[in-house]
Structures are given as C-alpha cells and as structure tokens.
Design a protein around this nucleic acid. Structure first.
Lengths: 210, 210
DNA sequence: GTCTATAAATGGATAGAC
DNA sequence: GTCTATCCATTTATAGAC
C-alpha cells in the first residue's frame, strides 16, 4: 500500500525527470563530446540537482549509454519505415535511395553518428545497438526487396541480393554524407544528393539488368 | 652567437621533446577521447613535465590540432601512392580498390578517423585537413585515371568521371569499414573485403563497359 | 525523490629556480 | 628549455535535511 501511495503521489513531474535528464545530456554530449561534459553542466541544463541525476543513473557512463541507446532507437525509426513504394523498379530504388541519402545528412543523425563513432571503443554495446537498429536492418530489408525483384525476373543478381544491397547502400553513404560528418558545410546540398542517387540507381540497374 | 651556442647545446634531446609529446598525446587521445585526456596524463606518458608541454604548445587545443594535422598527413601518405599498376582495366581497378578498402580498416586509420569525426565540429580545420589529404585527393586521382580510360575507349562514362569515381570509392567504404569504425569486430575480415572489392569492380565494369 | 552543501580528487595553466 | 611546486577552478560523487 505504501508503494501504491508513492506511485499516486509521484505520477506528475517526478516521472519525467529521467527523460529531462536524458534530453539535456544528449544536447550537451552532442555539443562537447562525452569526456568534456560534466555532471554539473547536465544538472544545470536539465534544471535538476546533481543528486537527482545520481538517483536515476548510477554514474556518468551509465547515463551516457542509456541515453545513447534510446537516441539510436528513436533516430533510426524514421528510415526503418523505408518500404517499397509503388512504381517501377527504377523509381522505387530512386525513392528508397533518396530517402536514405537525405536521412544520412540530417544534422540530428550526423551528430548522433559522431558520438557513436567517438565512443564505440569505450562503450561496445553502443556500436552494436547503432549497427543493429540502422545499417543492419535496412540492408536486410533492401536485400529482401531485391530478391523479390530477382524472382520476378526484373533483376539478375546471381542470387547475391545481400551483396547487391550493400553495394547500393554504400553508394548512398556518399561525399555529401562524409562532408556532413566532417562538418565541412553549413548545410547539406540536397540537389547534389539527388543527382548522386540518380547516378547510383542508373549504375545499379545497368549492372544488374537481366 | 648566443643563439648558435644554444642550438649546439640543445640539438640532442631537446629537439625531440615536441615529437615525444605529440606521440604521447596521440596515444592517449585515441584511447580516451579529447575531452577525457588531461595534460598531466600526457606529460606522464611523454616522460616530460607539464611545463615542458606548455613551452611548446599554447594549450591543450593547440596541441591536439597540431598533432592531429600531422597524423592526418602521415596516415594518408600510404594510400595517396595509389597509382595505376600495369594490367587490364579490371585488374587495375581491383588492385586500387583492394588497397583502399584494406587501408580503411587498418586500426591506426580507424582510430584516426574516430577522433577526426568526433572533434570536427570543435576543430573545423581538422575535418578540412582530413578531407583534403585523403578522400579528396584519392577521388581526384581515380577520376583522372577513369577519364584516361574513357579517352582510350575502355569505358563509357558520359564524361562524368568524377561521379563514377565517387560511386566506386563509396562502395569500398563498405560494411567491414563501418563495422571497424563501430568497433564490432576484434579484427577485420580481409577475405570478405576482397570479395566485396571483386563485386564492386564487376558491377562498375558491367555498368560502364562501352 | 529532490534539494543544498560539501568532500576529496583532478582539471588546465603558471611561477620561479636552474 | 626543462623542471618542481603550486594556484584556483572544476570534477565526480555523496551526506544529510526535507
């Protein structure tokens, strides 16, 4: 009964504190990097006391890992929706490719990628979570799609649908993506990306047309 | 004359201190990330006092940036040597591709890439230096090579040699590269890389064969 | 659970002797 | 140029009141 009373009494603002802390931590870690952010700064940014953070997270490392895994799951949801839209094979590949290539230069995605890459050696589960939630999922989906297209006689992949999918997706991790990762431009050049996707799709189809 | 005497007297170990410091800093920054490394730790690792570091570098940021630019130049030298080896077009592309794809999973290169990606937003010159010394240089070289091949009637690129080069190189930044970046494997799987390079080369040639 | 206050150690950077 | 010793702000994490 004590537990029940507690739950009632605290359903309001208390339950939101962990989320506030995660969001504040995400902002600061993105701006300054894991090692450069202090728990004091996170407490200030979240509008809570430091002791409150330690009431919800064991230490800085656990807060970081917990927050990052949530962020990975949330970010990749958008692109995991990539399903075949109606149209001919070329149009479908172009649409999937454009969505993915543009996703890969979104500032939120780029910032997340930077943190994952930077801290993967110290947080092994993080690199794994990112890979499974994103690249692995989307590669599998595209490979299945290409396999269906081959079964319908629209492509000649020699059964290597997974490798073909990897080749296609790799071409979408293109120079604009790299330039975004390296913070070389103020904002990504979307027309250039569209042209690259067209080029990659054309090349893919020329190579794998029956 | 005082200057001359000083130079004589200090030609031995003193001139090497900056290099010792750079090397120690590289090791620690790679292991722990920029924000997590202290100047005390660098001094210990280099076997010098903290004051000696500050005698050669204005502060932590300048030490990091100076060291990183040196590291970028040194690392990319290996792959910038990539010149056409004798053989037919397919064999040459395969050789270039294999060298580049294997370079991209070397632990030293992966560690450097992680740091550049992590700190590019805070050190804009770093992302620029990395890009110019590596991807930009190699893309230009390959584009020129492909253009010569097209002039000889061995390829049909429609004049878009640069885009073709980018497509080919993007396929070499493949899943093993991504897995290495994310620290998913203990050691890179070279046979898998060779198979991917073969696949990418075949696809490239099927698409662009006259 | 949440706060204020503080402990105990470490951070970047410098002074002054040699 | 190089060292030892040190300044003072900041660090992670906790104690104790509510």
């Amino acid at each position: 009964m004590e537990a029940a009373r507690k739950l009632e009494r605290t359903a309001g603002s208390r339950a939101m504190k962990p989320q506030q802390i995660r969001q504040a931590a995400l902002r600061l870690f993105q701006e300054q990097g894991y090692g450069a952010v202090s728990m004091d700064a996170i407490a200030r940014e979240a509008g809570v006391s430091k002791a409150t953070i330690y009431a919800h997270f064991a230490d800085k490392a656990e807060l970081f890992e917990d927050m990052m895994k949530s962020a990975c799951r949330e970010e990749w949801v958008a692109v995991s929706m990539l399903d075949a839209v109606p149209g001919d094979l070329g149009a479908e590949l172009r649409a999937i490719g454009k969505a993915y290539a543009e996703f890969l230069v979104e500032p939120r995605v780029v910032r997340l990628y930077r943190m994952v890459v930077a801290e993967s050696p110290r947080f092994p589960e993080l690199g794994r979570a990112f890979f499974e939630a994103g690249p692995r999922l989307i590669t599998g989906k595209l490979a299945a799609y290409l396999q269906r297209a081959e079964a319908q006689g629209k492509l000649a992949l020699g059964g290597a649908s997974n490798r073909a999918a990897q080749n296609f997706l790799a071409m979408l991790r293109c120079e604009p993506h790299l330039r975004a990762i390296l913070a070389l431009d103020k904002s990504p050049e979307m027309p250039e990306i569209a042209a690259i996707v067209d080029s990659a799709t054309d090349m893919f189809l020329r190579a794998y047309r029956p």
